[in-house]
């Protein structure tokens, strides 16, 4: 079974983000890491291939500047190989443009199953997995909290507003997984060493036959960026054993009690 996992390499969320004042898009020039949301998909894929007894996990990522640091983390976890789409022309791509590029790169792998996170931790548009499925004419199950493969079909528990649904979906298919679907493993030292020599193919949008990408293909322009009105500073006190009384008082003031 071949599983392709979409992974995003993002600026470390521990570093506060910024918008480029010129282009008004997220600045992505700092060192990139594997989006933690994607580590769940990588782990899920590794476990499904294990359970199937054969197959491999391939990664697909789109990132500027030939960035592979995040990919190496996922390779160290156990993925076999990766495709990196890195292309100046992709700068400014909207979610649909990104999905077109990813879908073209994924299709070349002819996967049985495509996994993705429900949304990235930096841009969180949250539409790319379903757009990729639509572009590839695949059925899809989003917001999975459990995934198994049985007899050529994915059996998924899908989050809903009220609880969850059990969904069956014939392969090939795309499944987007929520955080917590599995516990991602830490790369072992051996894994980290092995990852250094695993194949990462770098391609451009043109290599994939995808045109009209980046700023040119984007259906949106940023009109303005403004600071949200700040909340007024509150009262911060150190607990002296009696501070619960302040909370009671506050709740009385706002008439909650």
């Amino acid at each position: 079974m071949k599983v392709v996992v979409c992974v995003k390499q993002i600026p470390d969320p521990a570093d506060p983000g910024a918008l480029d004042p010129e282009s008004k898009t997220l600045v992505r020039d700092a060192k990139l890491i594997l989006d933690e949301s994607d580590s769940y998909g990588v782990e899920m894929a590794l476990q499904l291939v294990d359970a199937a007894g054969e197959g491999e996990v391939h990664l697909v990522s789109m990132a500027p500047n030939n960035e592979t640091a995040g990919l190496r983390t996922a390779l160290a976890m156990g993925a076999a190989s990766a495709t990196l789409i890195s292309d100046e022309a992709l700068k400014g791509s909207d979610a649909l443009g990104t999905a077109k590029v990813l879908a073209a790169a994924i299709a070349r792998q002819e996967p049985d199953l495509v996994l993705a996170a429900t949304e990235s931790s930096d841009g969180y548009t949250g539409t790319v997995p379903e757009q990729v499925a639509a572009l590839m004419d695949l059925p899809s199950v989003t917001f999975a909290k459990s995934v198994a493969v049985d007899g050529g079909a994915a059996k998924v528990q899908r989050q809903t507003e009220a609880g969850y649904d059990e969904v069956t979906c014939p392969l090939p298919a795309l499944v987007s997984v929520t955080a917590g679907v599995v516990e991602p493993r830490y790369p072992s030292f051996k894994g980290i060493m092995a990852a250094k020599s695993k194949p990462v193919e770098t391609v451009t949008a043109a290599d994939l036959g995808v045109t009209s990408v980046g700023w040119e293909g984007s259906g949106q322009t940023v009109a303005s960026v403004e600071q949200a009105p700040a909340r007024e500073a509150g009262t911060i006190i150190e607990d002296d054993g009696e501070s619960f009384g302040k909370i009671v008082e506050y709740l009385e003031t706002i008439k909650v009690i």
């Binding site: 639509a134 984007s218 949106q220």
Partner: peptide, 23 residues
């Protein structure tokens, strides 16, 4: 902005080849 809304808008965006703006 919920599960169903997101899935439908994503699929439709490909069908009409138009961008989506979320959140």
């Amino acid at each position: 902005q919920n599960y169903e809304g997101r899935d439908v808008m994503s699929r439709l965006s490909v069908k009409v080849d138009r961008t989506v703006l979320t959140n």
